[in-house]
């Protein structure tokens, strides 16, 4: 028996010779079902390939703001520069996705399918942000149980079933948590400290989720803080892009997705003194 993990359990070719498919006239059958009897065992995703970096999100007065840039990295290569990673589900729910882009597209299709399937019934009760979050957490957790994960971290934002702003994280392990400020990936180190400082200055009590707790935070201020975070991320995250999208969902004004925003008021003054920034200095 072959003990090679890719050919496990089959007769060894070096002892028994190549399998003779003409036995019982199976050659024809084998040719037809070649895809089923591939040379290698089925392999699941072991690492992400094309990736999107951080998604950030914060709550304000009567809603949430989220942002993500438009880059799809292939390792350290800036491969795709027009990837939309903020997925609108309905006017109360948005899903921000970082991690593997092909898995992002799978999630996009799952959400589209959910939207279509649920529209067949004449049920006039829409999915709210918390319903979508729970659905995605179950998708991600069951994929991790199959040891075949969707390699993503997501932030689901919008208005929840309690008609209050909703913001919650979930990742490829099925781990979920809520907080007034959330981020995936590098943003955890670069954006979260800025967002948390902002919330602390506004006197936010993180144990309360009702919008009254957030009445001090106006949409404009929160947006400014998010823009600042995107700038810091572009400065310091090597896998980021200066083109990004921002989405705002509020109870008052519904959803607003702004695309192709550019980071403004950057200062690269320091660069001219640093080797390796392409200023012509060689050493």
């Amino acid at each position: 028996m072959d003990h090679d993990p890719f050919r496990w359990g089959r007769p060894r070719d070096d002892i028994y010779g190549k399998y003779d498919y003409s036995i019982a006239n199976s050659e024809h059958y084998f040719q037809e079902h070649k895809d089923k009897y591939s040379e290698f065992p089925r392999m699941n995703t072991q690492e992400p390939i094309v990736t999107g970096t951080s998604v950030i999100g914060i709550k304000f007065e009567d809603g949430i703001i989220m942002a993500a840039d438009n880059l799809g990295s292939y390792g350290s290569l800036s491969r795709f520069t027009d990837i939309e990673r903020l997925i609108e589900f309905n006017d109360k729910t948005v899903v921000g996705i970082s991690g593997d882009i092909s898995d992002l597209q799978k999630i996009e299709r799952l959400l589209e399918e959910l939207k279509i399937e649920s529209s067949y019934d004449d049920v006039n009760i829409e999915f709210q942000a918390d319903n979508i979050h729970k659905y995605l957490r179950n998708v991600l957790y069951s994929r991790r149980n199959k040891m075949d994960p969707l390699w993503n971290s997501l932030i689901v934002g919008g208005i929840g079933s309690d008609n209050e702003p909703f913001l919650k994280y979930v990742d490829l392990l099925g781990v979920e948590y809520a907080s007034p400020a959330l981020s995936t990936g590098f943003g955890n180190y670069l954006a979260i400290p800025i967002l948390r400082k902002f919330l602390e200055e506004k006197g936010i009590d993180e144990t309360k989720t009702d919008s009254d707790n957030f009445r001090n935070i106006k949409e404009e201020e929160a947006r400014k803080c998010v823009l600042e975070c995107m700038k810091v991320l572009f400065y310091r995250d090597a896998r980021s892009l200066n083109k990004f999208s921002i989405v705002t969902i509020s109870k008052k004004n519904g959803i607003k997705l702004e695309k192709n925003l550019k980071i403004e008021d950057m200062s690269w003054e320091f660069a001219k003194d640093i080797k390796g920034y392409g200023n012509g200095q060689r050493y």
């Binding site: 019934d121 004449d122 999915f127 918390d130 319903n131």
Partner: peptide
């Protein structure tokens, strides 16, 4: 309840 964390809509249940 498990998948979407919501009470099943009545119309959906009877359908």
């Amino acid at each position: 309840k498990l998948v979407y964390n919501r009470p099943i809509p009545i119309q959906l249940a009877v359908n």
